[in-house]
């Protein structure tokens, strides 16, 4: 009988433990939002800085999107195993960069967001940055699946996983102002960047 009681006690304890851990899981999820809620006060209703997701860059440093506050950003979603479209998108952005640099507009930061969190770790991103000779004003970031899906939805980038591990995806280059608002986008590969560049110059 005593053993029975012990077993029961243990069962109750386990049940309680289970319930508690459930609760804390919920709380932690919710408290993340809560704590960061204050910081949102100074950004607009449509700012990308409202996203609370946690990212890491090519050096493995933690990043929140609000880290990119204060300067205009040119951003795109890519994945490092991408056979053709992403190198072209990066080439398109580099062309925009050299044109801006040539006219003295060099205060812009460049952001590549991985759509392949399963494979793109900081090392892969670093390697990609080296392969494409991306300068110090470029950041490459990755997060978990859900945060990646969320930012893709915010940007309106459609991503369809393929059975070979790759993705079908729409190609967009975004110009984001210092407050995190998307002010211009360039759709498609090798699209004419004239208007986009003009808008970049306006921002700086």
């Amino acid at each position: 009988m005593k053993t029975m009681l012990k077993v029961t006690g243990f069962a109750v304890f386990t049940l309680l433990l289970f319930n508690c851990s459930n609760k804390t899981e919920q709380k932690s999820c919710c408290s993340i939002h809560e704590s960061s809620h204050q910081a949102e006060a100074d950004v607009s209703d449509v700012s990308l800085f409202l996203l609370q997701s946690q990212w890491e860059n090519q050096a493995g440093k933690p990043r929140k999107l609000s880290y990119y506050k204060g300067k205009p950003t040119i951003a795109a979603m890519i994945f490092t195993h991408c056979p053709s479209a992403c190198p072209r998108i990066v080439a398109d952005i580099k062309n925009i960069e050299s044109e801006l640099n040539a006219s003295g507009f060099n205060k812009i930061q460049y952001l590549l967001i991985s759509m392949d969190p399963a494979r793109d770790n900081p090392e892969k991103l670093q390697r990609f940055a080296e392969d494409f000779r991306l300068g110090e004003n470029w950041e490459l970031i990755r997060a978990d699946q859900s945060s990646t899906a969320e930012i893709a939805q915010v940007l309106g980038v459609k991503i369809k996983p393929l059975s070979d591990g790759g993705f079908d995806h729409s190609n967009h280059i975004f110009l984001i102002n210092s407050k995190g608002e998307i002010v211009q986008q360039l759709a498609g590969l090798s699209a004419d960047p004239a208007e986009f560049i003009a808008e970049c110059k306006n921002l700086q």
Partner: peptide, 11 residues
């Protein structure tokens, strides 16, 4: 993944 079914196809 409600809207991943159709891509705009550029890739």
């Amino acid at each position: 993944d409600f809207n991943s079914a159709l891509t705009t196809g550029e890739s």
